[in-house]
Amino acid sequence: MPRRDRVAAIDCGTNSIRLLITDITDDGAPTEQVREMRIVRLGQGVDATGRLADEAIERTLQATREYAGLITMLGADRVRFCATSAARDAENADDFADGVESILGVRPQVLTGKEEALASFVGATRGVESARTLVVDIGGGSTELVVGEGSDVEWSTSLDIGSVRLTERFLPSDPPPVAEVTSAMNHLDSVLSPAVAGLDPVASVVGVAGTVTTVAAHALGLPSYDRDAIHGARLSIDEIKPACLSLVQMSVADRRALPFMHPGRADVIGGGALVLDRVLELLPLDTDTVLISEHDILDGIAWGAV
């Protein structure tokens, strides 16, 4: 009988904190028990102040307390808590880490950009047919782009462009006027173009995380957020880009009224969608489609715990 580990993985990003409790056996087959998300906006104002706001820390610790209850109830053998962009950038990240450790008994691991990119790649591509693949992971504070095949990463970059950061810096109006959108696009192009210069074209693209899955739901015209309908969907770039620009141009109220929209994502999804639009415009691609995956860095964090 194969050995089984019950793993609790927590991904704490700039906008959301997510929990996955899953059983992983020696034969590599995971059995998901729980997958939860809370929008806590840990990275509120970090881009401007360099610090985690007290109220943002408390929101995140409250969600951590809720997760601790689930972890205890389901009896996880191992717990791994990983923090990403907001914690990397904040001078008071240790205060937050102390709070997490007092609740869970484990100290957060603050992933470097390269570690974050690798975890995203592993989570997104496990179980996908082996081919040279680009994984696009757009978070609240940063965007990870990773190229690899199988378990081998050939190239990766972590860029300080994410839905929360871009919205706070360039898109303060509701809805944003053309001048703000143009300024944001120019900034994205100035960051992305040199980062991907010289990258050989890729024929397979996988898009992950909340910005991408929300844009996919919009492109598909879903009547509600349907994880099963989104996971594994293959959308053409010609479907995705209009969905991106549609979300950028909407008011927050109109976005919030969309039946698939998480209310905590409505105010920043325009910024994230703009990142996705420019990534698909500027990356060297030998494909006109993107595979949408609900498996991402959270799954990679879980695999890294065993």
Rank of each mutant, 00 (worst) to 15 (best):
V252E: 14
S224E: 15
D98F: 11
A124I: 10
G162V: 00
S251L: 08
D228Q: 07
V7S: 13
D277N: 10
M250K: 14
I10L: 14
M1I: 01
V135P: 09
Y67T: 10
I21H: 02
A117D: 04
V279Q: 03
S120W: 04
G127E: 07
G69T: 15
I301K: 04
D152Q: 15
T14S: 14
F96S: 06
I301L: 03
S173V: 10
N15A: 10
G198E: 05
R255I: 09
F81N: 02
L159Y: 01
T25I: 01
T49E: 10
R4C: 01
A97L: 10
G221N: 03
T214G: 09
A87Y: 00
V290K: 05
L104S: 03
T31A: 15
V40Y: 05
G123K: 13
F170D: 01
I24R: 08
P201S: 09
P2W: 00
C244H: 04
D226H: 09
P108I: 06
I57T: 12
G69H: 15
S16N: 14
G207D: 06
D299H: 14
N92V: 09
T287C: 13
D228M: 02
V215L: 02
G300S: 07
I237G: 08
A119L: 12
L298K: 07
A219V: 06
L118F: 11
L276N: 08
A63Q: 10
L285S: 12
K114Q: 15
S130Y: 00
F81C: 03
R169A: 01
S156W: 14
L298V: 02
R51W: 05
A243R: 07
R107H: 01
R3L: 03
